[in-house]
Structures are given as C-alpha cells and as structure tokens.
C-alpha cells in the first residue's frame, strides 16, 4: 500500500515496504527491462554488422551532420524536461507548462528528422526488406521512434494537465515518472548515435561488392 504523508517540512514520506514510492520504483524496474529490450536489438545489429550481401551500405546512406542535429535536439529535450520538473516542483505553473511544451516540440522535431531520414533511405533503395543492415537498422531506430512517439503523447497530456492546474507541486511525481521515461529514451539514443551512426557510418561495401547508389 502506498500512502503519502507530509512532515512539518512538507516533505512527502512514503509508507511503503521500501520507504520509496512504488510507482517510481516500478518505472525504474520497467526501464531496467527496457535496457534488455534495446540491448537485444543493439546486439543483433552488431552481430549482423557488415554482413549485408547487397547494398545500400551504411557508408552510402547514413548522414552524420543531419543526425548530429537531431541528437542535439533530443539532448536539449532532456534539458527541457528536467527544467520543467524543477519549475513544477517549485510551483511555477507557467514556466513548468512552457518547458513541458518545449519537450513536446523538440520531441516532435526529432520524430520529423526520423521521418525525413526514413523517407530518404527509402528513396535511396534501403527498406527493412532490402538487406540485413536495413532490417536491423529500421527495427532498432523504429522501436526507438515508437518510444519517442509515446513520450511525446504522454508529455502533451501533462502539458494540458499543467496548464489546467491539475499538475501541481504536490503531485509533481507524475511528471517525474514521465521524465524518467523521457530521459531513458534520450540515453538509448546516445548509445544508438555512437554505435549505429558514428561507428558504422564508415562501413563500406565488402570487397568485390559494387555500390548500388551512383
């Protein structure tokens, strides 16, 4: 049973088995399971890295400058998220709502970058069915994109709640839990950006294989 009491210093005290809020503990447990989930797809990508028998190959399609901008956008959305939580906890409703909306906007921009990237890849002839690089790349980044989409929808609801006054300093835990999810999406992208983009972007066609892009 979870029951929040308040001390004379207005510090919520959790009367649970662990002394910690059960919902927050559950979110951390979920994030732990999501580590395994994304770990499986990242490991699968690495296992099949450089094993495509036909193009396009990573060096022909991955666009590092564009992805750097989208990575920066997602990092800044994490900054906006932590600022939003700070202001909601401080009871500054307008600033809190504004920063939650910034998270929504930046998350949407990131999704836009991903949509443009996927469309560009399709234009270059790379789809999930083209080769093993396409399959592992689209599954990994697509699932991450689905996480971002869920996060944006969640944040949009919280922005509405904050604006309407339903999200206040005394129930800021709702935003903190959503924030944990959002930051996790960010750290997964930190790994994807390094492993899939920066490390794999130089993966050229194997010897004897011709590029399909001219």
């Amino acid at each position: 049973m979870t029951q929040a009491a308040t001390t004379e210093h207005h510090t919520p005290v959790e009367h649970t088995t662990t002394g910690l809020n059960n919902r927050k503990l559950l979110m951390w447990a979920f994030l732990g399971s999501d580590v395994m989930f994304f770990g499986a797809f990242i490991a699968t990508y690495l296992v099949y890295r450089g094993k495509s028998l036909v193009g396009p190959y990573p060096s022909e399609v991955l666009n590092i400058p564009i992805t750097t901008v989208s990575t920066f956008v997602l990092l800044m959305s994490s900054l906006a998220m932590v600022l939003a939580l700070h202001y909601v906890k401080e009871g500054e409703k307008n600033k809190g709502t504004l920063w939650i909306l910034v998270v929504v906007v930046l998350g949407t921009i990131f999704m836009g970058f991903q949509f443009v990237e996927f469309r560009e890849f399709a234009h270059l002839g790379l789809t999930p069915r083209t080769n093993i690089f396409g399959t592992t790349f689209f599954i990994l980044t697509g699932i991450h994109g689905a996480h971002v989409t869920i996060g944006v929808i969640w944040m949009a609801f919280l922005a509405y709640s904050s604006n309407s006054g339903a999200l206040r300093s005394d129930n800021a835990l709702d935003l903190e839990i959503a924030g944990l999810y959002w930051h996790f999406v960010d750290i997964v992208w930190i790994v994807i950006f390094t492993v899939i983009y920066l490390i794999s972007a130089n993966d050229a066609p194997p010897p004897g294989m011709e590029s399909v892009i001219h």
Binding site: L75, S78, L79, M81, V82, G179, L180, H183, F184, D186, I187, I190, V191
Partner: peptide
Amino acid sequence: KFIGVVAFFM
C-alpha cells in the same frame, strides 16, 4: 554522456 543524463537529469 550516459552518466551525465542518468546521474543528474534522472
């Protein structure tokens, strides 16, 4: 970067 986000933002 991972530690920065997990330690301080989370």
